[in-house]
Amino acid sequence: MGRGRVELKRIENKINRQVTFSKRRNGLLKKAYELSVLCDAEVALIIFSSRGKLYEFGSAGAGITKTLERYQHCSFTSQQNNVELETQNWYQEVSKLKAKYESLQRTQRNLLGEDLGPLSVKELQNLEKQLEGALAQARQRKTQILIEQMDDLRRKERHLGDINKQLKIKLEAEGHTLKAIESLWNANAAAHGNDSFSMHPSQPISIESCQPDPVLQMGYHHYVPAEGSSAPKNMAGETNFIQGWVL
């Protein structure tokens, strides 16, 4: 019976890992030598161990250094060819875009009514159809915008009408309140018979208007002798005389 298939993974045992490396390295070097001899191939093999030790093999006639130089030359040439190919593709793309740009500019001038001389009758007919189609779309869009604006204005009109109704109701309510206050003031004026209450209720009543006018008095108050008093009459006359200075 043959051995089972070994799973490829890192060998955890250090000794077993070193033994396996030595066996596989020798086998790989042997295979490289056999390939170069049997197939007349130029082979270069480089191996670095886990400790950094170098193992290499080169074909007998070439050597590893010459093989590496040849590899670098081939890689550079391949990269250079790739760059040239990519540059050529970009140049073609730029040429296509430039031609398309010039065509669009020419079409724009034709739509503006310029450079119509080189156009044929068929091209002019196509241009006329394009202009008619563009004009129809522009008119349709303009009509749609006008309809939207009219709907917006109608909504604003309804909103302002509602606000106007609310303000009217509020003003009417305030007017009824003012009329009730005015009737109350008129009723009070009629009950007291005072002209001061007949003023408009909206006019404020100041405290100064309710206070009496100031009186300037000079001398003594009126003196009236009591019955049986022994005060002389001339003193009573002087008192009455002084009372005349009261303003």
Results as ranks from 00 to 15, higher is better:
F76K: 15
N81L: 06
L45Y: 02
K14E: 12
P212V: 06
N110C: 02
S196E: 06
T107S: 07
L111K: 01
G219V: 00
S206W: 05
K233G: 04
E132A: 15
E132V: 11
G193T: 04
R51H: 05
V94C: 05
E93G: 05
Y91L: 15
V94R: 13
H192I: 10
K9L: 01
D151S: 15
G113D: 07
L35T: 15
G58A: 00
L216P: 01
A60T: 06
G4E: 01
K165A: 11
S198K: 15
T87H: 06
I147A: 14
G133D: 15
H159A: 14
K165C: 11
E238G: 02
Q144P: 03
K233Q: 08
N89Y: 10
A226T: 08
A231M: 06
L160A: 05
V215S: 05
K31G: 07
Q80H: 08
R51I: 02
I205F: 02
A99R: 14
S59R: 12
C210I: 15
K142F: 09
G161V: 11
D40E: 13
G219P: 00
G52E: 07
T239P: 08
S196D: 09
F76P: 03
H200N: 05
Y101M: 14
K96G: 12
P214R: 09
I11W: 00
L216G: 00
L135E: 11
I64A: 01
I207V: 11
Q105K: 11
L45D: 02
T107H: 13
Y101A: 12
E56M: 06
L28A: 03
L247W: 10
Y91V: 13
A44K: 04
N234F: 10
F48V: 15
A60F: 03
I169T: 09
H73K: 15
Q166C: 12
A99L: 12
K98H: 03
L124D: 04
Q217H: 10
E238V: 08
E182M: 05
Q80W: 10
A191P: 00
D213A: 15
P204T: 04
Q108V: 13
L54N: 05
S209P: 02
R106I: 04
G58T: 01
S209N: 04
E132K: 08
C210A: 13
V215W: 04
H221P: 14
G219C: 00
K23W: 02
T143P: 01
Y33T: 08
T239N: 13
V224C: 03
G219D: 00
S49Y: 03
L104E: 02
L97C: 07
Q211A: 15
Q18F: 06
S22E: 11
P118N: 02
G175Y: 00
K66Y: 02
Q137N: 05
G193V: 00
L104K: 06
